[in-house]
Design a protein around this nucleic acid. Structure first.
Length: 370
DNA sequence: AATGCGGGGGT
DNA sequence: ACCCCAGCATT
């Protein structure tokens, strides 16, 4: 983007943001940044990790709980994986929780967050976007954090990637990043970099939306090439999406007379890595109806079926329950947990399984076919 | 450069 | 049914 245009856009977005900023618990308002205040890097980091591919509404209650339970990076650095994974359960992308804990330990050890983009980028769970966001918002560095919002805003402003038979996605992405960076390079002297970043994100979230952008009320519509073309929704260009296959499996929920349920810890990497879950079979490509091989010896009753959609496949699980004796041992690795504790520490799929297994009316009728 | 990785809400 | 969301790590 040309310097003159970039300079106008930066100023307009900043002005718009000062009157229209969204309010979030992790954010410092524009009236505060105006007098030179900056948000706590720990809270910026914590929120940015939670917000990776996650809506603000979904992340917000998690952020509040983490902040009150672990007010500093040092407190979080001392937390057990048991506690962190339980607090993260339901938020998804659980490698984030593992990296969060690892990053907190490192940062606590060295005494605080580095202020440099590259040093931030080298920490676990912090990629180019998050490093730039922390550098800009917490430390005032003039580096562009190109998230989905800013990619959309900038690609429309400069009409990058719209031409049919144009450059590949890789090059398009580089052009978008370059244009975004030019907005920060041409930001007025002394203006808060973090406010420009958050202003561009708010603009993308509230005005420059994916489907029906509200160009009539957009503060930078006059600078927007896509708007001039009359087809803002044509940007940004997206890679074609692959289809989502169905997979099938079974889950086993042993229940003790005292009401405790049996759960296991999943392997540290991969799907739901490191999370507590009910026992399940591996999943396969075809549905089945009988009790699968590998179920621990017990009097299993088939309850219902739960469905869950992951990023790259859809899963449906038959749920089996067995009411076992108080002293029975099922498999070596695993433990008994009271139902009400289990339900909060499990990821969403685990909660669905548990709810189904424990539902009062799960009975013969729930044994329907697939 | 492609793939794996959650979950929920909007349309 | 499809889209998208303050993306990152691994291959």
């Amino acid at each position: 983007m040309e310097a003159a245009s970039a300079s106008r856009v930066s100023a307009l977005v900043l002005d718009w943001y000062r009157r229209n900023a969204r309010v979030f618990p992790w954010r410092m308002g524009p009236e505060e940044t105006r007098v030179g205040l900056r948000q706590d890097p720990y809270l910026v980091w914590l929120s940015e990790i939670m917000l990776q591919q996650t809506t603000t509404a979904h992340a917000e209650p998690y952020f509040q709980r983490f902040r009150s339970r672990w007010p500093t990076v040092h407190a979080l650095g001392r937390a057990s994986w048991e506690d962190v994974s339980s607090a993260w359960a339901g938020l998804g992308y659980y490698s984030r929780a593992r990296n969060l804990a690892a990053c907190a330990r490192i940062v606590s050890e060295v005494g605080g967050f580095p202020e440099d983009f590259h040093a931030l980028r080298d920490l676990p769970g912090i990629g180019p976007y998050t490093a730039a966001a922390i550098a800009a918002i917490a430390f005032g560095r003039r580096v562009a954090p190109v998230d989905g919002n800013i990619e959309r805003v900038v690609s429309r402003l400069a009409a990058i990637g719209g031409e049919p038979d144009g450059p590949g996605l890789r090059l398009v992405r580089r052009r978008v990043e370059s244009a975004a960076q030019s907005l920060f390079d041409n930001l007025e002297e002394g203006a808060p970099s973090g406010d420009l970043a958050q202003g561009l994100m708010d603009l993308g979230a509230r005005i420059c939306s994916p489907r029906r952008p509200a160009c009539s009320v957009c503060p930078v519509a006059a600078e927007c090439v896509a708007q001039a073309q009359g087809r803002p929704e044509a940007y940004p260009v997206k890679a074609p999406r692959s289809l989502r296959p169905n997979r099938y499996g079974a889950a086993f929920v042993p229940v003790r007379p005292d009401g405790a349920v049996f759960v296991v810890r999943r392997p540290p990497k991969g799907l739901l890595g490191g999370m507590t879950m009910p026992l399940t079979t591996p999943w396969g490509d075809a549905p089945f109806f009988e009790l699968p091989e590998g179920a621990p010896a017990a009097a299993w009753r088939r309850m219902g079926e739960v469905s869950h959609v992951f990023t790259h496949f859809a899963l449906s699980l038959q749920v089996w329950r067995a009411d076992v004796g108080q002293g029975d041992v099922l498999v070596e690795e695993g433990r008994w947990v009271p139902q009400e504790e289990a339900i909060v520490m499990l990821p969403s799929l685990g909660r669905k399984i548990l709810r189904n297994a424990l539902s009062a009316d799960a009975s013969p009728k729930a044994r329907g076919s697939l």
